[in-house]
Design a binder for these strands. Structure first.
Length: 560
DNA sequence: ATAGGGTTAG
């Protein structure tokens, strides 16, 4: 605040509400809440009645500072002054204040008691429900909203996207289009992120065209560019991601980090490092996520020494203090490289408590290196930290099974039963014609083409066998007969998805399969062989990384 | 004069 603002103020003999409010606004804008409140008191003591803007200024600063106590006081003030109860501006700011302070119930109460609400009141609340993860609540509210505008629709689209429900996000986007509401940059960025989750590369292409027509293509918009980079790499196309990156006129830390993370997930370690080196020559400062990318690039390429070097550098040279997630990358790096003992030392010596992710990285490494003892140790921590994390139980059971410790498998199964947990069904999906997503579960015969899929798969299996493919029975973590194991392997969801893609897609295009869990050894072998026999490039995105199968080989080097 | 929706993480 300019010092003379206050001086001038004191020269006014009888300041009116607007003069006071101007001063309060000045203080609040420069985050000097105490001074703002002091002026407010001054105003009241002198019997000057506040206007609604006076309250909204103070409430806004309560939102920013998350000062719930003062916020509640202002809420009461509103009542005592009277008249403002009906003021939509004041109420909306009040709702926002309660939301920012995490008091959704109070926000709702203000909303319910408003005599007249506008689209902003609704949207504020819808976003709050979405952020809390209550998509049902948000949807109910949205249904009750009469004049749904662009921002309200966008809040729904991005809300679903942020809650990991990309299909609903796209559904709402389409409903938005159908109801004739225009989309803008923010809407389309949300849609692109939903496509990234889904692996819907064709759909994303249309959205990108739309964005370019509207003047916010990746060349012009950093947001659009960064989310396209992320989308293309999550859809298995790093090169296209890089094309977008190169074409962006303005880049920021998001663009670089997304690209580095993309390279990392595809096992392009060298490209990730080169881009990092390029980045630090610009004015753009690397942040936490950038280093997550760099470190995970090291771990997917097995570069332990490089990883250690970057880990030591990040704080010393770039002022980014390693947090528990960076330690997770380091543990993952050491673990993958087989240095499990060293990984445990790092956990012991690190300055924070290990969280689930840390033990998860250890457990993952134990799977690669078939180490049931350390696995048990890590899993016990995990079972305490994440008692409902079904993936951990499955992983431990698989590790036991891989070394034939069936009594261990039984023990884990019992634990799962006792805790009333259920295995996540494995699911794979591909984008079919017209960009429609086709989903497959294991042993799933609900797809309209399932009869043909079965035939394609049978035929493929026979041809693969002639080439020397043998089902990998140890991929089935059950103590079953060979025949039964073969039957189970044969129905894994990614194989169904592959058969569907072979049946329907264009011959020259790569096949992109997404799945929710990690690919099993047998499917990995199967895909290697299938890529050779069919001369098709097969790209599988599992829940961790990408596998590019081409000419009988996988980009992960059979080490994942 | 004052308000609601956005990009990167193993």
């Amino acid at each position: 605040m300019q010092p003379y603002s206050t001086r001038i103020f004191h020269q006014v003999d009888y300041p009116n509400p607007f003069v006071y409010t101007a001063l309060i606004r000045g203080y609040c804008n420069e985050k000097n809440q105490e001074k703002g409140v002091e002026m407010y008191r001054h105003m009241r003591v002198n019997y000057v009645d506040p206007v609604s803007f006076t309250l909204t200024c103070l409430l806004k600063s309560c939102s920013d500072e998350e000062n719930l106590i003062l916020g509640r006081q202002m809420h009461k003030e509103r009542v005592t002054i009277g008249g403002f109860c009906r003021d939509v501006f004041v109420c909306n700011t009040l709702i926002d204040m309660y939301v920012k302070c995490g008091e959704l119930g109070d926000a709702r109460k203000v909303f319910d008691e408003m005599p007249k609400r506008d689209v902003i009141s609704w949207t504020t609340l819808i976003v709050a429900y979405m952020k809390k993860g209550d998509t049902v609540g948000a949807r109910v509210l949205f249904r009750g909203l009469d004049d749904k505008d662009m921002v309200a629709w966008t809040a729904m689209v991005t809300g679903f996207e942020q809650n990991g429900r990309p299909r609903e996000a796209l559904r709402y986007f389409e409903m938005m289009m159908n109801s004739g509401v225009e989309a803008d940059e923010l809407t389309l960025v949300g849609v692109i992120s939903a496509c990234a989750q889904l692996g819907a590369i064709k759909y994303a292409g249309w959205v990108r065209n739309m964005a370019e027509r509207l003047g916010f293509g990746p060349e012009d918009s950093v947001f659009m560019g960064s989310s396209l980079i992320d989308m293309y790499s999550k859809c298995g196309s790093v090169m296209e991601a890089y094309e977008v990156f190169k074409g962006m006129r303005v880049k920021n830390v998001f663009s670089y980090s997304s690209m580095i993370v993309g390279f990392a997930a595809h096992g392009c370690g060298k490209a990730a490092f080169d881009l990092f080196e390029e980045m630090i020559k610009t004015d753009i400062k690397p942040n936490k996520v950038t280093f997550i990318g760099v470190l995970s690039a090291c771990s997917h390429s097995g570069l332990v020494d490089e990883g250690r070097k970057y880990f030591d550098m990040m704080e010393k040279w770039y002022g980014v203090v390693p947090d528990v997630d960076h330690y997770t990358c380091l543990i993952d790096l050491l673990g993958r490289a087989g240095q499990l003992e060293e990984a445990l030392h790092v956990i012991r010596d690190m300055p924070m408590e290990p969280h689930g992710g840390i033990w998860g990285a250890v457990l993952g490494a134990c799977r690669i290196h078939k180490n049931p003892d350390i696995a048990e140790f890590a899993a016990n921590h995990l079972f305490e930290l994440e008692p409902d994390g079904i993936g951990n139980y499955v992983l431990l059971a698989n590790i036991y099974a891989s070394v034939g410790r069936w009594e261990g498998v039984q023990k884990v199964r019992k634990l799962v039963r006792e805790r009333g947990l259920r295995k996540n069904p494995a699911c794979s999906w591909v984008e079919g014609e017209k960009g429609i997503i086709h989903e497959f579960y294991s042993n799933d015969a609900t797809h309209p083409k399932s009869r043909e899929i079965e035939l394609v798969l049978k035929d493929l299996l026979q041809r693969l066998k002639l080439q020397g493919y043998e089902p990998n029975l140890s991929s089935v973590p059950y103590d079953l007969s060979e025949e039964e194991k073969k039957k189970i392997l044969y129905t894994h969801s990614e194989k169904l998805a592959l058969a569907y893609a072979l049946l329907t897609s264009d011959n020259f295009l790569p096949i992109r399969i997404m799945k929710n869990l990690r690919i099993c050894e047998d499917c990995h072998l199967f895909m290697c062989a299938a890529s050779q026999i069919t001369s098709r490039e097969i790209i599988i995105r599992d829940n961790v990384r990408f596998h590019h199968f081409r000419d009988g080989k996988c980009s992960c080097g059979n080490f994942w």
